[in-house]
Design a protein around this nucleic acid. Structure first.
Length: 751
DNA sequence: AGCACGCCGACT
DNA sequence: GTCGGCGTGCTC
């Protein structure tokens, strides 16, 4: 450091703390030359030398050269290669949210930023809006269209010209997909001077009227009350739980609130469970609002994601609809966050940095001073317990907004019944009855493939995946064995590998076999199987949905995918083929999930004037959850479930964290978790209970052994205190380097 | 996570 | 002799 004779420093060099994407719970310090042309700011991205490589990181702290007190002498620090952004990419509330997540989830900074940043930005690409352009029809084009000059077989060209002719102001290049126009067609047309492309700098948004209210729409009293309650809170943080039965008009409540938000010049962020539901939601919103709506989900290309993210950031997008990670879009003027189907599991990230978008959304909203609306017909116990604690305000929609008949439930006790491929006589009769009435039937079975086991009838050999120690699922059509755990697969044997017997038989029931059985029973019915295997193709799901709505399908057979969000007005019977697994599982949350599932699938039926029926097949017909759901509804079930959790001191009444470790051998895994436990045990003054190490539910996965150590406490602060106090020591454990490990806060399920 | 360094086995 | 296996250690 240089000093002037009078003692004041001349060195304005800075020391910059950077989050780099490595699995280390620390930042890295760099020097920044005093004459660097861009002033450093927290929230800018930088490129930095890192070992022998160059990485992109995010500035998280700036200190003066003189004030730096690290382990390394300041001269030994490397220089930042470059600052990538002129200004911080993030406003103060997202930076604060990052800080909160780091503290709460005890995750490495770099991993958190990897989740927050769109991948293009994480890779160091410039945060630049691509220039948009407008396609317009020319006078020649109009004449060509009118004078039938377009070649007869050039149907696409004709359609495209017609669409451009309808849109007087032209169509934005970035919006071509909305109009189903191909770029190649436009290029051909441009060659004939029938269309013209104009490059523009900003999005033209000028609408006199932002909403198109549907005709004759009368709100229910409850809807009106809910809208009023939330409206009064638009300028401040408050989480609302919109507990609305199916068809009670939750979406209409969202739309009215969004309208107010937009009129105030603010933006609305809407999270939906999965990509499959974005087109549907998008359409509903587009029909209603003449504003710029963007989507953010994994179905987009990286460049599209970046562009939409930047539109949210600049404020050019007034409504942002997306899945989980859309929560992290920077917003120019946030007005409201809406989480639809808030109970849905897909709001939890289960890879890498594990977080709950619902929980983080509430924190974010509190930093932004805006409301959050959590909507569901079957709310999570977490949200309901937050209502009891006055952290969340509950608004009920119990009346149906659309005319709809009530759903009739029937439980079929499978004990001592003879089944035809998993179907009871009553269910078969029910299907026939509904088909005769020209209605559609939905059969739900949460297990894809033909059969979960392939077994040798002679010697008892069964098809085990060596890497996971669980049974391969048999897929009949492809004649393959597939491990649904690790994804490995191999050809199915026709002879027993052990005794060469030909008596190798599939045991158990999957959707593929169910479809086969139903086809045999109802040869005249048109049957569609909808699961991950049949919807792999990109547009497959949409094609199925169209076919179902168009009445081309009589019986739908499917997994989880069918339970979510879609409205099939002509479905009047829903059959739940096998509820046993869902009722009794090692996971204490199983009944909660099953109750949500029943509520959701039963929402698929009875949407029209015809009466809806739900038939549940189970061996545990006396399970209390079933009668609660059927006779008193989800709310009553949830109340008693919460009571049970309180009594057993289980989450969400208590708070949990989990260390999970995995490696190709058991010993290092156990050693690491035992070492971890020892470190945690040093703070026995904190009221945190330690459970384990114990094997994970599926101990072996993809050739790795997995063990867990649970931390549980009724005092969330003490739990976090314990983790904060011990994390460094655990991370620097010698045994930590021999395994892959992570902490999960508020863990759920296994995986 | 990457990437380099380093120390032992089977190859031209 | 040396090519390359992955164990260990470091990243500012």
């Amino acid at each position: 450091m240089l000093s002037k004779p009078n003692g004041s420093t001349t060195n304005h060099e800075k020391v910059i703390s950077v989050a780099v994407n490595v699995p280390l719970r620390r930042l890295f310090e760099y020097r920044l030359a005093a004459d660097y042309p861009i002033p450093p700011q927290v929230g800018q991205r930088v490129t930095v030398p890192f070992g022998k490589q160059t990485k992109t990181g995010v500035i998280l702290a700036i200190s003066s050269f003189e004030d730096y007190h690290g382990d390394l002498p300041v001269e030994k620090l490397k220089f930042i290669t470059s600052i990538l952004d002129e200004q911080s990419l993030f406003g103060p509330s997202l930076l604060k949210l990052y800080q909160w997540m780091e503290k709460y989830y005890h995750a490495p900074p770099g991993e958190i930023w990897q989740t927050i940043l769109p991948s293009e930005l994480a890779k160091g690409k410039p945060a630049e809006r691509s220039r948009d352009s407008i396609w317009q029809i020319t006078q020649q084009g109009r004449e060509a269209l009118a004078g039938n000059q377009v070649a007869k077989n050039a149907i696409k060209q004709k359609l495209t010209l017609a669409k451009l002719n309808e849109n007087r102001h032209g169509i934005l290049h970035s919006r071509l997909a909305d109009y189903d126009i191909q770029y190649t067609t436009l290029k051909t047309l441009a060659g004939k001077n029938w269309v013209l492309r104009d490059f523009i700098d900003a999005l033209p948004i000028a609408h006199d009227q932002i909403t198109n209210l549907p005709n004759n729409l009368v709100l229910t009293e409850q809807q009106t009350k809910a809208i009023q309650a939330i409206s009064q809170s638009l300028e401040q943080y408050q989480t609302f739980l919109l507990f609305g039965v199916t068809a009670s008009g939750k979406t209409e409540v969202y739309l009215r609130l969004i309208e107010q938000v937009i009129l105030q010049g603010k933006q609305a962020l809407v999270l939906v469970p999965e990509i499959g539901l974005t087109p549907q939601t998008l359409k509903r919103f587009k029909d209603r609002f003449n504003v710029n709506i963007v989507v953010l989900h994994s179905g987009l290309t990286d460049q599209q994601r970046l562009q939409n993210w930047l539109q949210a950031k600049s404020g050019d997008a007034q409504i942002i609809i997306g899945t989980r990670s859309a929560l992290f879009s920077e917003l120019f003027s946030p007005g409201i966050i809406i989480i639809d189907e808030e109970h849905d599991q897909s709001f939890r990230q289960q890879q890498g940095f594990r977080y709950s978008a619902r929980d983080v959304a509430m924190v974010r909203a509190s930093f932004e001073n805006i409301p959050v609306v959590l909507g569901s017909a079957s709310p999570s116990l977490e949200s309901l317990i937050n209502v009891d604690k006055n952290k969340v305000r509950r608004l009920d929609l119990t009346e149906k907004a659309q005319s709809q008949t009530d759903v009739k439930f029937r439980i079929i006790d499978l004990k001592k019944q003879s089944l035809i491929n998993g179907l009871s006589r009553d269910l078969i009769a029910g299907i026939r009855h509904h088909l005769d009435a020209k209605s559609q039937v939905l059969l739900f079975l949460n297990r894809r493939g033909y059969a979960p086991v392939l077994l040798c009838h002679e010697c008892g050999w069964s098809s085990l995946c060596q890497r996971c120690d669980i049974h391969y699922t048999y897929h009949h059509q492809s004649h393959y064995l597939q491990c649904h755990h690790c994804g490995s697969n191999r050809k199915a044997p026709t002879q027993c590998p052990q005794c060469q017997s030909e008596q190798v038989v599939p045991v158990g029931l999957g959707t593929e076999r169910l479809a086969e059985a139903v086809t045999a029973l109802f040869p005249d019915a048109k049957i569609a199987r909808i699961d991950r295997d049949t919807t792999r193709r990109k547009s497959a799901m949409n094609d199925y949905v169209d076919a179902i709505k168009g009445g081309e399908i009589d019986i739908l057979i499917g997994t989880q995918m069918l339970a979510k969000g879609h409205h099939f007005p002509n479905v009047t019977l829903v059959g739940l083929i096998d509820m046993d697994g869902a009722l009794y599982s090692a996971d204490f949350r199983a009944p909660e999930y099953a109750a949500q599932l029943i509520t959701q699938v039963s929402g698929r039926t009875g949407r029209s004037s015809k009466a809806g029926e739900v038939i549940i097949q189970t061996h545990h017909s006396d399970h209390p959850m079933l009668s609660q759901i059927i006779h008193s509804g989800y709310a009553t079930f949830a109340e008693s479930a919460i009571e049970e959790r309180v009594e057993a001191e289980l989450p969400p009444h208590s708070f949990a964290a989990m260390f999970q470790a995995e490696a190709p051998f058991v010993d290092p895994v156990k050693t690491f978790l035992q070492d971890t436990k020892q470190i945690l045990d040093r703070y026995s003054n904190l009221k945190v209970e330690l459970l384990g190490p114990c094997p994970a539910l599926y101990t072996k996965k993809a050739g790795k052994f997995r063990y867990q150590l649970f931390l549980q406490s009724v005092n969330r602060n003490q739990l976090h205190q314990l983790l904060s106090l011990t994390m460094n020591d655990i991370e620097s454990l010698a045994s930590a380097k021999k395994v892959r490990w992570r902490v999960e806060i508020d863990p759920v399920g296994d995986s």
